[in-house]
Design a protein around this nucleic acid. Structure first.
Length: 328
DNA sequence: ATTATCAG
DNA sequence: CTGATAATG
């Protein structure tokens, strides 16, 4: 997924506690996939209610939100709108991988190979309108704001950080840097004792690489993004070297007679002038405890004890806040 | 992914 | 208290 910038960026390790008091714009698609992939039984079967509806994402949203609220970290979920038409190929390729993984998952299950089953189940995680709608419903009941992007959620979240409405974007992808997000936080996880969160800052990244934001985008276009193939054999390091030497993507394409799989001006525009909404409202409210219980426990079979315990963490966070009005 | 439970 | 393992829906 996304652009492979890992080889050239240097993230800084932080502790979850460093985010106390900060607001984080969560890339909803990225986070929901994480939940849908990971929150499964050992054989890969997702958590489901008695009617067979997947509930893994609801579990993830509830417990992670409870844990960040307890640490006085504010989150805003940002959902994707329409995906750019140039992303079509990426979207269908991912759909294909998921379909094939599902076949392999079922096959491994029949053969009784639990480890293999789980491996493919993770890759088969699929989004659906039901999953998106139930996620939004739960966020509303929890009093957590969400923003519906007109286009790419990553672009919207990045814009919100630029505007100061959030301190960082939370995503496992580095792509938000291309959309100009000043900060991206990876591994915004709670039980992540193995992996602490890490932060990547756009400004310091550009300074370290001695390139401009536009040049970073140009480099990504050489390597390949969700919207273009890129040039075969060019990774982040070579891409960086070429952009530094030639100055911009147009010179690289001309001098190397390279095909990046798209119109560089259009592709630049996706990242540099993305379609975003400037008109959104962000407000945290107290959770509707009985509403959450009705939705999660009555409708979806969650344990009431567990849900109430999670919701306690919300209340603790708000009552210990000095300026309650800042929160609710 | 997160929480609950259990062993040491 | 720490770490491994099971359960969660």
């Amino acid at each position: 997924m996304g652009v492979k910038l890992r080889d050239v960026v240097s993230p800084r390790r932080i502790r979850l506690e460093d985010l106390r008091g900060r607001t984080v714009a969560v890339d909803a698609a990225n986070t929901l996939y994480q939940f849908l992939s990971s929150i499964r039984q050992r054989d890969g079967t997702p958590l489901m209610d008695s009617r067979g509806r997947v509930t893994s994402h609801l579990s993830g949203i509830l417990y992670r939100t409870a844990a960040v609220m307890e640490r006085e970290i504010r989150v805003i979920y940002v959902f994707d709108g329409r995906s750019h038409h140039l992303k079509g190929e990426t979207v269908s390729r991912r759909a294909d991988i998921r379909k094939k993984s599902e076949v392999e998952w079922k096959r491994a299950l029949e053969e009784g190979d639990i480890d293999r089953a789980r491996k493919y189940a993770v890759r088969s995680a699929r989004m659906s309108s039901e999953i998106l709608e139930s996620s939004k419903r739960l966020l509303e009941l929890l009093g957590i704001p969400y923003v519906q992007a007109p286009g790419e959620g990553e672009a919207q979240a990045s814009y919100m950080v630029k505007m100061g409405d959030a301190w960082a974007v939370a995503s496992q992808d580095y792509d938000c840097l291309l959309f100009g997000a000043p900060r991206v936080v990876r591994n915004l996880t709670i039980s992540g004792k193995l992996e602490d969160p890490e932060i990547i800052e756009l400004e310091s990244t550009l300074r370290e690489l001695s390139i401009s934001h536009t040049q970073l985008v140009d480099m990504a276009l050489l390597v390949g993004t969700d919207f273009n193939e890129g040039v075969k054999g060019i990774g982040a390091r070579r891409g960086l070297k070429l952009i530094r030497e030639k100055g911009d993507i147009f010179n690289v394409i001309r001098d190397l007679e390279a095909d990046i799989g798209g119109d560089p001006r259009v592709l630049r525009g996706i990242f540099l002038e993305p379609e975003v909404s400037e008109d959104y409202e962000i407000r945290w409210r107290k959770p509707d405890v009985e509403g959450v219980i009705e939705f999660l426990c009555t409708e979806h079979g969650f344990s009431e004890d567990r849900v109430r315990a999670a919701l306690k963490k919300f209340e603790g966070a708000s009552s210990t806040q000095k300026s309650l009005e800042d929160w609710f």
